[in-house]
């Protein structure tokens, strides 16, 4: 990702942000609200357009054409703050929908994948219930399973625990940690400092659309170089 600019009307949300994420790396993006971190993440799979610069995922320029956009979206899984499960479909159908309709897999094959993933996220007995019957934490784990069903190379997490009750956060973070251990490439927008410290290879700090600091997790938390970063950390690490 190089020199990405994005504006909403007269408001410039991203003012030339560059980032390189290697295969298998876990990057946590921190920053105050309005810093552009969600926009950054959403532009990686083309949910947001960009005004200049370029984003390349696995050799494909995301905003090149419709064609590359669809291919990139199949390579990237996304998990949203509000889960966004499909309420009219069961948990199993939520997971099988994209493999069946996008990858044209058979129902049998898709269901095998779905059951394996439900096992992985710890919900093997919830296949046939509707999302509204699940807790927020369970819904978010299903959403992770749904994204994984497309066998993505990168997973994007947009504040995945921000809408959850405190006691449900851990079960979601545990699934994410497992994923990181399996070697999944992950970009995570989150305020979970514990997760960042434990799992992140790299931490990115954004403020007002600019990259303020990019460092290894250890360096970032122990010895931040910028005043803005220090101020931010002092506020959230009471």
């Amino acid at each position: 990702m190089t020199e990405v600019h994005k504006r909403f009307g007269r408001l410039e949300v991203l003012k030339g942000v560059s980032l390189r994420v290697a295969k298998g790396e876990v990057v946590v993006v921190l920053g105050p609200s309005g810093s552009g971190k969600s926009t950054l993440l959403r532009s990686i799979n083309g949910l947001e357009t960009i005004d200049s610069g370029s984003i390349v995922v696995d050799g494909l320029k995301v905003h090149d054409s419709r064609e590359t956009l669809y291919r990139v979206r199949q390579l990237t899984g996304m998990v949203f703050q509000q889960f966004n499960l499909f309420p009219h479909r069961t948990v199993l159908q939520n997971i099988t929908m994209a493999p069946m309709h996008v990858q044209k897999k058979s129902r049998q094959e898709a269901e095998e994948i779905a059951r394996r993933l439900l096992h992985k996220v710890g919900l093997p007995d919830k296949a046939d219930v509707y999302p509204s019957k699940l807790s927020g934490g369970q819904q978010q784990r299903v959403a992770i399973g749904r994204a994984l069903a497309m066998n993505p190379k990168v997973m994007l997490f947009d504040e995945p625990t921000s809408a959850l009750d405190p006691e449900l956060i851990k079960e979601v973070l545990d699934v994410m940690k497992d994923l990181a251990k399996d070697g999944m490439t992950m970009i995570v927008v989150s305020h979970e400092i514990g997760f960042a410290k434990e799992v992140a290879d790299k931490v990115l700090f954004l403020d007002q659309g600019l990259k303020v600091e990019e460092a290894s997790a250890e360096q970032f938390f122990r010895n931040p170089t910028h005043e803005r970063t220090k101020l931010f950390l002092s506020k959230i690490l009471l």
């Binding site: 799979n45 949910l47 669809y70 979206r73 199949q74 990237t76 899984g77 996304m78 949203f80 509000q82 966004n84 499960l85 499909f86 309420p87 009219h88 929908m97 994209a98 309709h101 996008v102 990858q103 959403a143 749904r146 994204a147 497309m150």
Partner: peptide
């Protein structure tokens, strides 16, 4: 229908048409 539904469908690689007919319309009908 909340726009997150469409975004979730698109993020899974669905086309606009698939998002409409598989995700949005079935919910809208109810």
């Amino acid at each position: 229908i909340q726009k997150g539904q469409r975004e979730a469908a698109l993020s899974l690689g669905m086309t606009d048409r698939q998002a409409m007919f598989l995700v949005i319309l079935p919910q809208a009908v109810r």
